[in-house]
């Protein structure tokens, strides 16, 4: 009952957000029809050609009408033709999104295992040497820009040790070895934040009365952490994981370009370099949609893990 209302409210906000986002994207890229014609037909098209193309494609209609028509087409899956790749945009985006999903999924695994693991280890004994070492490590990995850590890690593992391939174009089919570096760099960059949140949450729980009671009863450290502390300490961190997705999407662009990985990031990047506006529009819409959906999921997980929070209340 509560869950239904809560979910409907979240979905309504998400739809409103997507509407405003779609309007902003359309406004930014298509308000100036002359620009659109130049981007689609190229710099060397004549004025007459552009005028004819604009008339043929309904660009002489009012802006509001064009927006509604564009939005309608977008919702029904007609995303236009890519001017650079000469192919329907809708068919190009999905396979690339799946390829990036593989990369992001691997990174998420690294983030969850190392972020939660290191966070719990550090928060078990706040102020200990282990805590300080882990804290410094996570500050360092998150502060270094992802393209720089890609350079450092490739320098070590590709050129110095010769253990891993330096490009991930997957030319001769799928290769797990080619995924190792991009996944590690992405995961390392986003792991620090989760480690920090986990550490803070763990440290809070370790200071509570019920943990002290367990300790006074003579329970061992392992038992205290596993049986008593973890369940409460992990609520916030698990919620935060979903919120890493927007960050991960930004990172995916940089890392895919660096390792020449054929995913959503390189697609958007190629679109941007070639002024391929319909492809840019679709990529931007899809990436915001992914973020908005991940936020709903994160709210749901939080409500499910923490029954004390009334789902209807402002989180």
């Amino acid at each position: 009952m509560f869950l239904g209302i809560f979910l409907m409210r979240k979905v309504a906000i998400a739809v409103a957000t997507m509407l405003v986002v779609s309007f902003l994207i359309f406004l930014a890229l298509e308000v100036n029809v002359e620009d659109v014609a130049v981007k689609v037909l190229g710099q060397y098209s004549t004025v007459e050609q552009r005028a004819a193309w604009l008339a043929q494609n309904g660009y002489n209609d009012a802006f509001a009408l064009r927006y509604v028509r564009w939005l309608g087409n977008f919702v029904t899956g007609d995303w236009g033709m890519s001017t650079f790749f000469r192919a329907p945009v809708a068919e190009m985006v999905m396979p690339r999104l799946a390829a990036s999903g593989l990369l992001a999924g691997g990174a998420l695994l690294v983030i969850v295992v190392f972020g939660l693991g290191l966070g719990v280890l550090a928060g078990m004994r706040p102020g200990s040497l282990l805590d300080r070492v882990i804290s410094v490590f996570s500050v360092v990995t998150t502060s270094i820009p992802d393209f720089a850590s890609a350079v450092f890690l490739s320098g070590i593992f590709v050129f110095w040790l010769g253990l891993l391939p330096g490009a991930s174009a997957m030319i001769s089919g799928f290769s797990l070895a080619e995924l190792v570096l991009p996944v590690s760099v992405l995961g390392l960059y986003s792991m620090g934040y989760l480690a920090r949140v986990t550490r803070a949450s763990m440290a809070d729980v370790m200071g509570t009365h019920y943990i002290r009671t367990a300790r006074l009863k003579g329970a061992g450290m392992g038992r205290i952490v596993l049986r008593h502390a973890l369940r409460n300490a992990l609520i916030t961190p698990i919620t935060v994981i979903m919120l890493q997705l927007p960050w991960l999407l930004s990172g995916v662009i940089v890392i895919e370009v660096f390792y020449a990985y054929k995913g959503f990031g390189t697609l958007l990047y190629d679109a941007a370099l070639n002024q391929d506006i319909y492809l840019i529009e679709a990529c931007a819409m899809v990436s915001v949609l992914v973020v908005v959906l991940s936020q709903i999921l994160s709210d749901l997980i939080y409500g499910w893990l923490n029954p004390r929070i009334a789902l209807g209340a402002e989180a």
Partner: peptide, 22 residues
């Protein structure tokens, strides 16, 4: 607040790329 949330729902780099393209 709603407008701020709208802008924040773009992955940062996607937002930059759109702005720089325009």
């Amino acid at each position: 607040s709603f407008l701020a949330n709208v802008v924040l729902s773009f992955p940062v780099l996607v937002l930059y790329i759109v702005i720089i393209v325009v």
